[in-house]
Amino acid sequence: MSEKKNKKSSEDSKIDEALESSRRDFLKKVGIVGAASVTGAAAVYSGYRYEKSKSTGDTIKVLTEDNRLVEIPKDQVKDYKPGLKVLQTRGREGINGKRWVMVIDLSRCRNARKCVNACQGAHYLRPYEYHINTLVMQESVNTPAYYMPKTCQHCDNPPCVSVCPVDATFKRQDGIVLIDNERCIGCRFCMAACPYSARMFHWQEPLSKEADKGKEYNIELNVPQKKGTISKCLFSADRLREDVLPYCVSACPNGVFYFGDENENAVTNGTTKETVSLSELLEKNGAYRLMAELGTKPRVYYLPPKNRLFKFEKGAETDYKETT
């Protein structure tokens, strides 16, 4: 009995094997045919698209990085979005051949605070968080009070950069002092060292936490801002890369700011868009730098508040309440 059963079962398995192998063969064939037809269809389709694009002749001339003029189909043009690595590398290097410089004409400031607002809008700051602030200054009781926009001075001998333990704040070749919010450990030594109180700290979640989601961090804009790190005036390094004047400079309605390149000896007024000689402007107006005696060598020059265009008004200070 058992022998019989064994025999039968061995026969069964033989049949099974044969069936199985023929099924495998069949599947193989179907697979090959299927794959071939899909490839073929894809080839035909892409050829069709290529022909179509060729027939419309929709091309565009672009200049490559190595200065070659090439022609490519228009529908293949994509907006270039630099990744974090590119942003970080070029952000640390700065713009070759430039030495950015700012001139602030105190005789024209009337505390409109448009510079402050434009800056806070661009960098997503709360109304009392400043990259630029306008201060009421008075040297002594006998001298007149005046308004003074105060940015980071982008010192050539920056105390903040010296003390930073991790190279999070650094000096670029074009003169700008930047801060890398991806690296800052939040020790605030730079705040302690800065004599101009130019730096702010993100004590809480930045204002734009929700809006910033998914955005690539731009070291030249400090956006997205990051909790527990330092932020400060960047001379709008992102705008300079696009050859546009800084946010504060172009927002001023009263022609207070001049901005330009020391190497070209030319600065442009943000309001009038008039370009003048830097050395002449400084010399004619008796320019000075803030607390020059500290040896910080600021890149921001001030023209004294002589022959002021606007009268000083009392009560210029604003009170703010902390918000989340």
């Binding site: 333990p165 690296r183 939040g186 527990g228």
Partner: peptide, 23 residues
Amino acid sequence: SDMGRPDRLPNVFLFGRVQSPIL
């Protein structure tokens, strides 16, 4: 406890700058 980003403490060793008195 004073650091804004204690999670980045390794940065002190990764990117430490000898000019800084903190180092």
